[in-house]
């Protein structure tokens, strides 16, 4: 029990003391996970909306694949991205393995199916005639689609939160494609794993607390943004 209490005390001291290495790891974690979430949103929102709104052969297969992707172990994604980026692999010439870019690629691959599946569900929950009604009021197709996405903004934000939560907390892919190189590709999760394995529990708990604070802060911002213009029901 002492280990835990001491760990917390030291962790708080470490954080308040402004340890530069800790803050550098935190900043890198945010940069990688937010960029990966953004890429997943840019790819996943149009794909999810298209899957929900258009009828094509194999639509259910795409949805099932996206749903499967939601539960895909990050280690598997890490493995495939590693193979792709390996020096002798198809993308080896770019020399991306063990760089933050490789970690962004892996995390985007983890987050995109989550966004696709949740966006498709969110869009399907809006009235099927919503687009027709918006066009019937004078909106062009793009404007009607924008109105539809705005209507589904709460579940869309939930999709973004789920995607961010998945990538900021995963450790397998980050370890495999990033290599946990100090000052280069070390992020909070891989740093916490390393610290724990070395018995530096205070440091590990400090990383854990920062992860929790980040997750809470990002979700708080997105929740406030989502609730901003909606009127409370009476």
């Amino acid at each position: 029990m002492d280990v835990l209490v001491d760990g917390f005390v030291q962790a708080v001291r470490l954080l308040l003391g402004g340890d530069p290495a800790t803050w550098a790891i935190t900043a890198l974690t945010l940069r990688i996970s937010l960029t990966a979430t953004l890429i997943a949103a840019l790819v996943g929102v149009p794909v999810g909306a298209a899957v929900a709104l258009t009828a094509f052969r194999g639509r259910r297969v795409v949805l099932a694949a996206a749903n499967t992707g939601m539960g895909m172990p990050p280690v598997v994604v890490g493995l495939f991205v590693t193979v792709l980026l390996w020096r002798s692999g198809p993308l080896g010439a770019f020399g991306l393995l063990y760089t933050p870019t490789a970690m962004i690629i892996a995390q985007a691959a983890i987050a995109t199916p989550i966004v696709v599946a949740l966006v498709a569900t969110a869009v399907q929950q809006v009235d099927p005639d919503f687009m027709v009604q918006m066009q019937g009021l004078g909106a062009g197709r793009l404007r009607a689609l924008a109105a539809l996405l705005a209507e589904a903004r709460l579940p869309l934000l939930a999709a973004a939160m789920a995607a961010f939560g998945a990538v900021v907390s995963e450790v397998g892919a980050a370890q495999m494609v990033g290599g946990n190189l100090a000052g280069q590709t070390r992020v909070l999760t891989t740093a916490a794993v390393l610290a724990t394995s070395r018995g530096e529990f205070a440091l590990a708990i400090a990383f854990g607390l920062i992860l929790l604070v980040i997750a809470f802060a990002v979700n708080l911002v997105l929740t406030l943004a989502g609730q901003h213009r909606s009127v409370p029901a009476r």
Binding site: Q133, A150, V231
Partner: peptide, 25 residues
């Protein structure tokens, strides 16, 4: 301008909904 069988309104106030057609234009 079309009105469908089910009144498909957007999130928000009545006033904002009444203005929605003009906003879309």
């Amino acid at each position: 301008a079309a009105v469908l069988q089910r009144p498909i309104l957007r999130r928000g106030t009545v006033r904002a909904n009444a203005a929605a057609g003009l906003r879309l234009r």
